[in-house]
């Protein structure tokens, strides 16, 4: 099965396309692919407890690993210690790690 890194940089409160991206991640994972969803920039906002956090939790339940760029979290005053259990902070280096590993990396 394929391995994917999907990068989401948009705020789900601003763009409904983010939900479609979450759905893509979930579908790939349910099909047996290895999927990581990396949140960057305003894409990290649902990692702060809010009305959009539940959608992120559903993605994790589908088997997607969810990471949040620690720099983007700090910029937005989101305490990494208070992230939902389904979201782990990560350095942006993870993108290069996955490119090196040959994963399909897609930035939405």
């Amino acid at each position: 099965m394929a391995k994917y890194l999907l990068i989401e940089s948009r705020d789900p409160f601003e763009s409904n396309d983010v939900e479609n991206h979450y759905a893509l991640a979930s579908s790939l994972a349910k099909d047996g692919d290895t999927v990581t969803l990396l949140l960057v920039q305003n894409g990290v906002l649902p990692a702060r407890k809010s009305a959009r956090t539940e959608a992120l939790e559903k993605v994790a339940k589908a088997g997607v690993e969810i990471l949040a760029d620690e720099f983007s979290l700090r910029e937005r005053g989101i305490d990494a210690a208070r992230l939902p259990a389904s979201v782990k902070k990560a350095a942006l280096d993870v993108v290069i790690d996955h490119l090196e590993d040959g994963r399909k990396v897609v930035w939405y």
Binding site: Q41, F71, D93
Partner: peptide, 19 residues
Amino acid sequence: NARTVTTMRLIDIAARRGH
């Protein structure tokens, strides 16, 4: 926009790894 900063950060990481 912020995407430029993130992009530059990414290329910088790859550059520092000697790729």
